[in-house]
Simulated scan of single mutants.
Amino acid sequence: MTRWMLALVCAGGAAMASEDIADKYPQSELYDKPVEVIPHVWSAIGATAPPTYENAGHNNNLSFVVTGDGIVVINGGASVRLAAALHDEIRAVTDQPVRLVINENGQGHAMLGNAYWADLGVDILAHEDAIHEIEENGDFILQGMQGYNRDRAEGTRVAVPNLSFSDRHVVEMGEVTLEVLHLGPAHGPGDTQVWIPDWQIVIAGDIAFHERMPPIFGDTCTSCWIETFDGPFTALGATYVIPGHGHPTNMAQVTRYTSDYLKDLRAKIRAHLDAGGDLAEAYYVDQSRWQMLDTFEELATKNAGRVYEEMEWE
Protein backbone atom coordinates (compact mmCIF):
# COMPACT_ATOMS: atom_id res chain seq x y z
CA MET A 1 0.00 0.00 0.00
CA THR A 2 1.30 3.43 -0.84
CA ARG A 3 1.99 5.89 1.97
CA TRP A 4 -0.60 8.18 0.36
CA MET A 5 -3.29 5.50 0.36
CA LEU A 6 -2.43 4.40 3.90
CA ALA A 7 -2.98 7.94 5.09
CA LEU A 8 -6.39 8.04 3.44
CA VAL A 9 -7.49 4.72 4.87
CA CYS A 10 -6.39 5.63 8.38
CA ALA A 11 -7.57 9.24 8.34
CA GLY A 12 -9.85 10.19 11.19
CA GLY A 13 -11.43 13.15 9.41
CA ALA A 14 -12.53 13.86 5.89
CA ALA A 15 -9.75 14.87 3.50
CA MET A 16 -11.47 18.11 2.59
CA ALA A 17 -11.35 19.61 -0.86
CA SER A 18 -12.18 23.20 -1.61
CA GLU A 19 -14.31 24.58 -4.41
CA ASP A 20 -11.87 27.48 -4.60
CA ILE A 21 -8.89 25.34 -5.62
CA ALA A 22 -7.87 26.11 -9.18
CA ASP A 23 -7.64 23.45 -11.87
CA LYS A 24 -4.90 21.09 -10.74
CA TYR A 25 -3.88 19.90 -14.21
CA PRO A 26 -4.11 22.90 -16.58
CA GLN A 27 -2.30 21.14 -19.44
CA SER A 28 -5.17 18.63 -19.67
CA GLU A 29 -8.95 18.73 -19.96
CA LEU A 30 -8.90 16.69 -16.75
CA TYR A 31 -9.22 18.54 -13.45
CA ASP A 32 -6.42 16.41 -11.99
CA LYS A 33 -3.97 13.77 -13.18
CA PRO A 34 -4.93 10.14 -12.49
CA VAL A 35 -3.34 8.52 -9.44
CA GLU A 36 -2.78 4.82 -8.77
CA VAL A 37 -5.01 4.21 -5.76
CA ILE A 38 -3.87 0.63 -5.28
CA PRO A 39 -1.81 -1.40 -7.77
CA HIS A 40 -3.63 -1.55 -11.13
CA VAL A 41 -6.53 0.72 -10.09
CA TRP A 42 -6.30 4.37 -11.14
CA SER A 43 -8.60 7.33 -10.71
CA ALA A 44 -8.66 10.91 -11.96
CA ILE A 45 -10.27 12.72 -9.04
CA GLY A 46 -12.65 15.46 -10.14
CA ALA A 47 -13.46 18.78 -8.52
CA THR A 48 -15.96 18.65 -5.66
CA ALA A 49 -17.56 21.83 -7.02
CA PRO A 50 -20.47 21.89 -9.48
CA PRO A 51 -19.54 21.45 -13.17
CA THR A 52 -18.09 24.60 -14.75
CA TYR A 53 -16.22 25.65 -17.86
CA GLU A 54 -13.07 25.92 -15.73
CA ASN A 55 -13.23 22.27 -14.59
CA ALA A 56 -14.63 21.13 -17.99
CA GLY A 57 -17.34 19.19 -16.18
CA HIS A 58 -14.76 16.95 -14.51
CA ASN A 59 -16.39 17.02 -11.09
CA ASN A 60 -16.65 13.28 -10.59
CA ASN A 61 -14.11 10.46 -10.50
CA LEU A 62 -13.00 8.84 -13.76
CA SER A 63 -11.39 5.52 -12.91
CA PHE A 64 -9.77 2.67 -14.79
CA VAL A 65 -8.55 -0.83 -14.00
CA VAL A 66 -5.50 -2.38 -15.70
CA THR A 67 -6.36 -6.08 -15.94
CA GLY A 68 -3.39 -7.49 -17.87
CA ASP A 69 -5.57 -8.12 -20.92
CA GLY A 70 -7.20 -4.75 -21.37
CA ILE A 71 -8.56 -1.74 -19.54
CA VAL A 72 -11.93 -1.31 -17.87
CA VAL A 73 -12.93 2.37 -17.60
CA ILE A 74 -15.48 3.48 -15.03
CA ASN A 75 -17.38 6.54 -16.30
CA GLY A 76 -17.49 7.85 -19.83
CA GLY A 77 -16.79 11.42 -18.73
CA ALA A 78 -18.73 14.66 -19.19
CA SER A 79 -17.70 15.20 -22.84
CA VAL A 80 -15.82 13.51 -25.66
CA ARG A 81 -12.89 15.85 -25.02
CA LEU A 82 -12.77 14.74 -21.39
CA ALA A 83 -12.94 11.08 -22.42
CA ALA A 84 -10.10 11.64 -24.89
CA ALA A 85 -8.01 13.31 -22.20
CA LEU A 86 -8.53 10.31 -19.92
CA HIS A 87 -7.56 7.98 -22.77
CA ASP A 88 -4.32 9.93 -23.22
CA GLU A 89 -3.51 9.27 -19.56
CA ILE A 90 -4.34 5.58 -19.90
CA ARG A 91 -1.96 5.31 -22.86
CA ALA A 92 0.77 6.88 -20.72
CA VAL A 93 0.30 4.08 -18.18
CA THR A 94 -0.10 1.04 -20.45
CA ASP A 95 -0.44 -0.04 -24.05
CA GLN A 96 -3.33 -2.37 -23.18
CA PRO A 97 -6.49 -1.45 -25.11
CA VAL A 98 -9.67 -0.17 -23.48
CA ARG A 99 -12.14 -3.05 -23.75
CA LEU A 100 -15.08 -1.90 -21.62
CA VAL A 101 -16.56 1.33 -20.26
CA ILE A 102 -18.99 1.25 -17.33
CA ASN A 103 -21.35 4.14 -16.58
CA GLU A 104 -21.95 4.43 -12.83
CA ASN A 105 -25.33 6.11 -13.48
CA GLY A 106 -27.18 8.07 -16.16
CA GLN A 107 -25.92 11.53 -15.22
CA GLY A 108 -23.99 13.68 -17.68
CA HIS A 109 -20.57 13.34 -16.12
CA ALA A 110 -20.92 9.56 -16.23
CA MET A 111 -22.17 9.16 -19.77
CA LEU A 112 -21.73 12.17 -22.08
CA GLY A 113 -18.26 11.00 -23.05
CA ASN A 114 -19.66 7.66 -24.22
CA ALA A 115 -19.59 8.79 -27.85
CA TYR A 116 -15.79 8.94 -27.80
CA TRP A 117 -15.55 5.32 -26.64
CA ALA A 118 -18.35 4.11 -28.91
CA ASP A 119 -16.57 5.55 -31.94
CA LEU A 120 -13.57 3.40 -31.00
CA GLY A 121 -15.76 0.30 -30.92
CA VAL A 122 -15.58 -0.07 -27.13
CA ASP A 123 -18.53 -1.77 -25.38
CA ILE A 124 -20.36 0.44 -22.87
CA LEU A 125 -22.23 -1.11 -19.94
CA ALA A 126 -24.83 0.51 -17.68
CA HIS A 127 -27.70 -0.51 -15.46
CA GLU A 128 -31.04 -0.77 -17.23
CA ASP A 129 -32.48 2.14 -15.20
CA ALA A 130 -29.51 4.34 -16.09
CA ILE A 131 -30.02 3.48 -19.75
CA HIS A 132 -33.67 4.48 -19.45
CA GLU A 133 -32.60 7.81 -17.94
CA ILE A 134 -30.13 8.39 -20.78
CA GLU A 135 -32.78 7.59 -23.39
CA GLU A 136 -35.38 9.81 -21.74
CA ASN A 137 -33.24 12.76 -20.62
CA GLY A 138 -29.99 12.51 -22.57
CA ASP A 139 -30.69 15.41 -24.92
CA PHE A 140 -31.69 17.67 -22.03
CA ILE A 141 -28.55 16.66 -20.11
CA LEU A 142 -26.43 17.35 -23.19
CA GLN A 143 -27.92 20.82 -23.56
CA GLY A 144 -27.06 21.59 -19.95
CA MET A 145 -23.45 20.56 -20.51
CA GLN A 146 -23.26 22.62 -23.70
CA GLY A 147 -24.45 25.62 -21.71
CA TYR A 148 -21.54 25.65 -19.25
CA ASN A 149 -18.88 23.96 -21.41
CA ARG A 150 -19.34 26.01 -24.61
CA ASP A 151 -16.50 25.17 -27.05
CA ARG A 152 -15.42 22.27 -24.84
CA ALA A 153 -18.72 20.55 -25.69
CA GLU A 154 -17.89 20.37 -29.39
CA GLY A 155 -18.32 16.89 -30.84
CA THR A 156 -20.21 15.48 -27.86
CA ARG A 157 -23.44 13.63 -28.56
CA VAL A 158 -25.58 11.21 -26.59
CA ALA A 159 -24.48 7.60 -27.06
CA VAL A 160 -26.64 5.05 -25.28
CA PRO A 161 -24.74 2.10 -23.75
CA ASN A 162 -24.96 -1.05 -25.85
CA LEU A 163 -24.81 -3.45 -22.86
CA SER A 164 -27.17 -3.52 -19.87
CA PHE A 165 -27.59 -5.42 -16.61
CA SER A 166 -30.16 -5.55 -13.82
CA ASP A 167 -28.55 -6.75 -10.58
CA ARG A 168 -25.08 -8.19 -11.21
CA HIS A 169 -22.74 -8.49 -14.17
CA VAL A 170 -19.41 -10.29 -13.80
CA VAL A 171 -16.44 -9.17 -15.91
CA GLU A 172 -13.49 -11.55 -16.10
CA MET A 173 -10.61 -9.93 -17.89
CA GLY A 174 -6.94 -10.75 -17.67
CA GLU A 175 -6.09 -11.46 -14.05
CA VAL A 176 -9.08 -9.60 -12.59
CA THR A 177 -12.69 -10.42 -11.77
CA LEU A 178 -14.90 -7.37 -11.46
CA GLU A 179 -18.45 -7.55 -10.14
CA VAL A 180 -20.62 -4.79 -11.57
CA LEU A 181 -23.44 -4.38 -9.07
CA HIS A 182 -26.73 -2.60 -8.56
CA LEU A 183 -27.21 -3.16 -4.83
CA GLY A 184 -30.52 -1.33 -4.57
CA PRO A 185 -32.05 2.14 -4.74
CA ALA A 186 -29.78 4.91 -3.50
CA HIS A 187 -28.78 8.30 -4.90
CA GLY A 188 -30.43 7.94 -8.29
CA PRO A 189 -31.70 5.56 -10.96
CA GLY A 190 -29.25 2.86 -11.96
CA ASP A 191 -26.62 3.55 -9.31
CA THR A 192 -23.79 1.11 -10.02
CA GLN A 193 -20.88 -0.15 -7.93
CA VAL A 194 -17.80 -1.94 -9.28
CA TRP A 195 -16.46 -4.38 -6.69
CA ILE A 196 -13.12 -6.16 -7.03
CA PRO A 197 -13.25 -8.72 -4.20
CA ASP A 198 -9.68 -10.01 -4.59
CA TRP A 199 -8.36 -6.48 -4.03
CA GLN A 200 -10.99 -5.41 -1.50
CA ILE A 201 -11.74 -2.20 -3.40
CA VAL A 202 -15.11 -0.82 -4.46
CA ILE A 203 -15.51 1.92 -7.04
CA ALA A 204 -18.69 2.99 -5.35
CA GLY A 205 -20.24 5.64 -7.55
CA ASP A 206 -22.80 7.97 -6.02
CA ILE A 207 -24.00 5.67 -3.29
CA ALA A 208 -21.09 7.03 -1.21
CA PHE A 209 -19.92 10.58 -0.42
CA HIS A 210 -17.48 12.07 2.05
CA GLU A 211 -15.98 15.37 0.82
CA ARG A 212 -19.04 16.98 -0.73
CA MET A 213 -22.62 16.97 0.47
CA PRO A 214 -24.73 14.18 -1.02
CA PRO A 215 -27.33 15.65 -3.38
CA ILE A 216 -30.89 14.45 -2.88
CA PHE A 217 -33.01 14.46 -6.03
CA GLY A 218 -36.76 14.88 -6.29
CA ASP A 219 -37.17 11.14 -6.87
CA THR A 220 -34.55 9.98 -4.34
CA CYS A 221 -35.84 7.66 -1.63
CA THR A 222 -33.58 8.49 1.32
CA SER A 223 -34.88 5.64 3.49
CA CYS A 224 -34.11 3.26 0.61
CA TRP A 225 -30.64 4.79 0.21
CA ILE A 226 -29.90 4.20 3.91
CA GLU A 227 -31.17 0.62 3.66
CA THR A 228 -29.02 -0.12 0.61
CA PHE A 229 -25.96 1.56 2.12
CA ASP A 230 -26.20 -0.05 5.58
CA GLY A 231 -27.14 -3.41 4.08
CA PRO A 232 -25.55 -4.86 0.94
CA PHE A 233 -23.07 -2.02 0.37
CA THR A 234 -21.58 -2.21 3.86
CA ALA A 235 -21.69 -6.01 3.69
CA LEU A 236 -19.12 -5.95 0.88
CA GLY A 237 -16.53 -5.28 3.58
CA ALA A 238 -14.43 -3.06 1.32
CA THR A 239 -11.07 -1.86 2.59
CA TYR A 240 -10.75 0.83 -0.09
CA VAL A 241 -13.53 3.03 -1.44
CA ILE A 242 -13.37 5.25 -4.50
CA PRO A 243 -16.54 7.34 -4.16
CA GLY A 244 -18.34 9.00 -7.00
CA HIS A 245 -16.87 12.34 -5.94
CA GLY A 246 -13.84 13.11 -3.79
CA HIS A 247 -10.64 11.31 -2.90
CA PRO A 248 -10.33 7.57 -2.26
CA THR A 249 -11.05 6.71 1.36
CA ASN A 250 -12.49 3.96 3.58
CA MET A 251 -15.90 2.72 4.70
CA ALA A 252 -15.84 4.61 7.99
CA GLN A 253 -15.54 7.91 6.18
CA VAL A 254 -18.26 7.36 3.61
CA THR A 255 -20.55 5.95 6.30
CA ARG A 256 -20.12 9.09 8.39
CA TYR A 257 -20.76 11.50 5.55
CA THR A 258 -23.43 9.53 3.67
CA SER A 259 -25.53 7.21 5.82
CA ASP A 260 -25.04 9.22 9.01
CA TYR A 261 -25.84 12.46 7.17
CA LEU A 262 -29.04 11.05 5.70
CA LYS A 263 -30.13 9.69 9.08
CA ASP A 264 -29.42 13.02 10.77
CA LEU A 265 -31.36 15.00 8.18
CA ARG A 266 -34.30 12.61 8.33
CA ALA A 267 -34.33 12.86 12.15
CA LYS A 268 -34.37 16.67 11.93
CA ILE A 269 -37.21 16.62 9.41
CA ARG A 270 -39.16 14.07 11.47
CA ALA A 271 -38.92 16.32 14.53
CA HIS A 272 -39.98 19.27 12.40
CA LEU A 273 -43.00 17.38 11.05
CA ASP A 274 -43.99 16.16 14.50
CA ALA A 275 -43.94 19.76 15.70
CA GLY A 276 -46.32 20.75 12.91
CA GLY A 277 -43.66 22.53 10.85
CA ASP A 278 -44.30 23.40 7.23
CA LEU A 279 -42.19 23.15 4.07
CA ALA A 280 -41.06 26.78 4.14
CA GLU A 281 -39.52 26.28 7.59
CA ALA A 282 -38.14 22.82 6.73
CA TYR A 283 -35.54 24.32 4.40
CA TYR A 284 -33.80 25.81 7.43
CA VAL A 285 -33.57 22.88 9.83
CA ASP A 286 -30.16 22.87 11.48
CA GLN A 287 -27.57 21.17 9.26
CA SER A 288 -24.57 23.06 10.66
CA ARG A 289 -22.96 19.76 11.64
CA TRP A 290 -22.29 19.21 7.93
CA GLN A 291 -21.31 22.70 6.83
CA MET A 292 -17.67 21.68 6.25
CA LEU A 293 -18.76 19.66 3.21
CA ASP A 294 -18.25 21.13 -0.23
CA THR A 295 -21.48 22.18 -2.01
CA PHE A 296 -23.14 22.70 1.40
CA GLU A 297 -24.36 26.14 0.32
CA GLU A 298 -25.77 24.79 -2.94
CA LEU A 299 -27.44 21.68 -1.55
CA ALA A 300 -28.34 21.85 2.15
CA THR A 301 -31.65 23.70 1.84
CA LYS A 302 -32.65 21.79 -1.30
CA ASN A 303 -31.95 18.50 0.46
CA ALA A 304 -34.04 19.49 3.46
CA GLY A 305 -36.99 20.47 1.30
CA ARG A 306 -36.88 17.26 -0.67
CA VAL A 307 -36.68 15.10 2.45
CA TYR A 308 -39.65 17.00 3.91
CA GLU A 309 -41.69 16.26 0.78
CA GLU A 310 -40.64 12.61 0.96
CA MET A 311 -41.36 12.14 4.67
CA GLU A 312 -44.62 14.11 4.72
CA TRP A 313 -46.39 11.08 3.26
CA GLU A 314 -44.48 8.30 5.01
Rank of each mutant, 00 (worst) to 15 (best):
Met1Trp: 06
Met1His: 09
Leu6Ile: 12
Leu6Tyr: 06
Val9Ala: 14
Ala14Asn: 11
Ala15Asp: 09
Asp20Arg: 12
Asp23Asn: 05
Gln27Glu: 10
Tyr31Met: 05
Pro39Met: 04
Pro39Glu: 03
Ala44Asn: 07
Gly46Met: 09
Ala47Tyr: 02
Thr48Asn: 11
Val65Thr: 11
Val66Trp: 00
Asp69Leu: 00
Val72Trp: 06
Val72Asn: 06
Asn75Leu: 10
Asn75Ala: 14
Gly76Cys: 04
Gly77Gln: 10
Val80Thr: 13
Leu82His: 05
Ala83Met: 11
Ala83Gly: 09
Ala84Tyr: 04
Ala92Tyr: 01
Thr94Phe: 01
Asp95His: 01
Pro97Ser: 00
Val98Gly: 01
Arg99Gly: 01
Leu100Ala: 06
Asn103Arg: 02
Gly108Gln: 00
Met111Ser: 10
Asn114Thr: 03
Ala118Phe: 02
Ala118Asp: 07
Gly121Lys: 04
Val122His: 02
Asp123Gly: 00
Ile124Trp: 01
Ile124Met: 06
Leu125Glu: 01
Ala126Thr: 06
Glu128Gly: 10
Ala130Pro: 12
Glu133His: 14
Glu133Asp: 15
Glu136His: 15
Leu142Phe: 03
Leu142Gln: 07
Gly147Trp: 05
Gly147Thr: 09
Tyr148Trp: 10
Asn149Tyr: 08
Arg150Thr: 12
Arg152Asp: 07
Arg157Pro: 03
Ala159His: 10
Val160Asn: 07
Leu163Phe: 01
Phe165Trp: 03
Asp167Val: 05
Val170Trp: 00
Gly174Asp: 02
Leu181Lys: 14
Leu181Asn: 14
His182Val: 13
Gly188Pro: 09
Asp191Phe: 13
Val202Thr: 15
Ala208Ile: 11
His210Thr: 09
Arg212Met: 13
Arg212Tyr: 03
Pro215Lys: 01
Phe217Gln: 15
Gly218Lys: 15
Thr222Met: 05
Ser223Asp: 08
Ser223Asn: 08
Ile226Glu: 10
Thr234Asp: 10
Ala235Gln: 10
Leu236Thr: 12
Gly237Asn: 09
Thr239Val: 10
Gly244Asn: 15
Gly244Phe: 14
Gly246Tyr: 10
Gly246Arg: 04
His247Lys: 15
Pro248Asp: 07
Gln253Ala: 13
Arg256Gln: 12
Tyr261Asp: 02
Leu262His: 08
Leu262Met: 12
Asp264Ser: 03
Leu265Gly: 02
Ala271Arg: 07
Gly276Lys: 12
Leu279Ala: 11
Tyr283Val: 06
Tyr284Gly: 10
Ser288Gln: 02
Asp294Met: 09
Glu298Val: 13
Lys302Cys: 03
Asn303Leu: 08
Asn303Trp: 09
Gly305Val: 06
Glu310His: 12
Glu310Thr: 09
Met311Phe: 01
Trp313Met: 07
Glu314His: 03
Glu314Asp: 01
